[in-house]
């Protein structure tokens, strides 16, 4: 039996979204001061939440694949376009260090009544317009230095999946250990 249902209707979107938004909010990731504090190395919540989530989901997918319940070929695996992928990440990092959020967390912040989160989301829409305005001129750059389609770290490093997972878990545990004194700082507030 294969568990990839391919349910992409409104109900599936709403259910996944409600859970996503709820968890981000309760994890403290709707707070722009806490989010941007990660990039000033004053708080490690973003790293710890994100890497735990990545490793739990990646391990879960690995187990489901081993059990024959999920096929890797049924999953969407993005492709690297070295410059575009790096530049996009850099701009989103800059947006967070200045404006406090990334696209998803601005929605979470806004939903708790933060007007700066709403304004950030308006900025996202303006950013799309600016991008569309110059798309024809920058299009070749967006697909330059393409990696192999849907390449995984295992394929890149020539390692089995379990070894990649073990390596990533080791890195995450090491970073969390060395930053444990900062961790999730209780004193992060932006209140005026």
């Amino acid at each position: 039996m294969i568990l990839s249902f391919g349910w992409n209707g409104p109900l599936s979107g709403l259910v996944c979204g409600v859970l996503f938004g709820y968890v981000l909010q309760r994890g403290g990731l709707g707070n722009g001061c806490r989010l941007s504090a990660q990039l000033r190395l004053q708080d490690w919540t973003v790293f710890n939440v994100m890497f735990t989530a990545i490793l739990v989901a990646a391990s879960g997918l690995y187990v489901l694949e081993l059990a024959g319940l999920v096929r890797q070929t049924d999953l969407f695996v993005p492709t690297t376009y070295l410059w575009a992928t790096l530049l996009g990440g850099a701009l989103i990092g800059t947006g967070m260090s200045v404006g406090g959020y990334c696209p998803g967390t601005s929605i979470v912040g806004a939903a708790a009544g933060r007007l700066d989160g709403i304004v950030f989301f308006v900025g996202l829409i303006i950013g799309v317009f600016l991008f569309a305005g110059i798309y024809d001129r920058i299009a070749p750059m967006l697909t330059a230095a393409a990696g192999p389609e849907a390449q995984t770290l295992g394929q890149l490093l020539g390692l089995p999946v379990w070894a990649v997972l073990a390596l990533l878990i080791g890195c995450a545990v090491a970073v969390s250990w060395f930053t444990r004194r900062t961790g999730t700082s209780p004193s992060i507030t932006c209140a005026d």
Binding site: I92, G95, V122, L124, G127
Partner: peptide
């Protein structure tokens, strides 16, 4: 920040 992020996410 939103403009930089929105542009970047399309890149």
């Amino acid at each position: 920040g939103g403009i930089a992020s929105g542009f970047g996410a399309r890149v």
